[in-house]
């Protein structure tokens, strides 16, 4: 019943939210810039955009998972595992083409994601529990394949490290890849039947069955896609920081989920927009980059991030409740 009572305002609210988010980002940037002019310097800006690129790649994948009412806590570990395997390969074969390294990372990620997809769709384990278990397994494997050692900058070929610093068509490669993925996602979720089926499944799983949507296939798809993106992000991450460690990206899944929630993705499924998620990622990127510049201790970041997520979650809920109540008030009896 409550779902039916959402008013038209909610659609408008979605737009308002994006503008609000954009406004907040601008405001935040201005404040940071006033306090520390180094913020908008080209060097810092590039760094900011590069970091945000990786975050937004992951957040787009997570958006699809959340839309199907799922969650994936294993992506930090998937990222580490695929980054590590790619780095180890590069260490062993310094002549390896960087594209091949990226491919290796993606394949590892896809396998990890497919395992999770199988557990969720075929075995029927709750996504949170399945991904929690796999998070540990993948993290453990990262330590295992690396023999608990780091792969450091000097062990990587220049061409590999170059992935993060080179540019394509004048745009940094990381950013270029993120833009490509953004465009692909925008097309995929808005203009393909499969993309819309993801939303339909999350919006009403029971009706989806009647409409002949193969839910197992969709679950497999979103988790595998998430895995593949994590694998890609893993390679980019290792290339950017020029080091692969056992604890790479530990806890990063939470930041990714935070970006989605800030971007207006509903944890109850069915709702989420590519542009919103992108803005959510940018906001977190600005915070991540800007707070140290205005002398906020890096140890405060986690707390601030936690508070922001909680506030975003509560804000969504309260607004929805108010709208429903207003709807009831408007009903005349």
């Amino acid at each position: 019943m409550s779902e039916m009572m959402k008013s038209i305002n909610l659609a408008k609210l979605g737009k308002f939210r994006e503008f609000g988010l954009l406004g907040f980002i601008v405001l935040l940037s201005i404040v940071i810039q006033l306090l520390n002019p180094a913020f908008l310097s080209p060097g810092n800006l590039t760094d900011l955009i590069k970091n945000t690129a990786i975050l937004s790649i992951l957040a787009l994948g997570m958006m699809l998972v959340l839309i199907t009412r799922g969650i994936d806590l294993s992506i930090g570990a998937t990222l580490a595992l695929s980054g590590m395997i790619a780095a180890l390969t590069v260490r062993a074969y310094p002549d390896l083409h960087p594209l091949l390294a990226i491919l290796i990372g993606i394949v590892v990620g896809v396998v990890c994601g497919a395992v999770l997809g199988l557990l969720v769709s075929k075995v029927g384990i709750l996504p949170i529990i399945a991904s929690l278990g796999l998070m540990n397994a993948f993290r453990g494997m990262t330590y295992w394949v690396s023999g608990r050692e780091w792969v450091s900058a000097y062990q990587m070929s220049d061409s590999f490290k170059h992935i993060a610093t080179s540019s394509i068509l004048g745009i940094n490669t990381l950013v270029f890849i993120a833009i490509i993925i953004f465009i692909f996602f925008n097309y995929f979720v808005n203009n393909t039947v499969t993309g819309r089926q993801i939303y339909a499944l999350g919006s009403n799983p029971d009706s989806a069955k009647i409409s002949g949507i193969n839910s197992d296939r969709i679950y497999m798809l979103v988790y595998t896609l998430m895995g593949g993106l994590s694998g890609l992000a893993g390679v980019l991450w290792v290339s950017k920081f020029a080091s692969a460690q056992g604890n790479t990206g530990s806890g990063y899944e939470l930041t990714v989920i935070a970006a989605c929630i800030l971007g207006g993705v509903s944890i109850n499924g069915g709702v989420g927009k590519v542009t919103g998620v992108l803005l959510g990622a940018v906001l977190l990127g600005v915070l991540d980059n800007g707070l140290p510049l205005i002398n906020v201790s890096p140890f405060w970041q986690m707390g601030i991030e936690g508070a922001i997520i909680l506030i975003a979650v509560l804000f969504n809920t309260i607004v929805k409740k108010t709208v429903e109540r207003n709807n009831l008030l408007r009903r005349v009896i």
Partner: peptide, 24 residues
Amino acid sequence: YPDLSITENIFMGHEKVIKWTRRI
């Protein structure tokens, strides 16, 4: 599907797509 548009609800299961690109 409460979160989808009227159009999508109407055409769910028999969407109109371009044959080759599968674009809606």
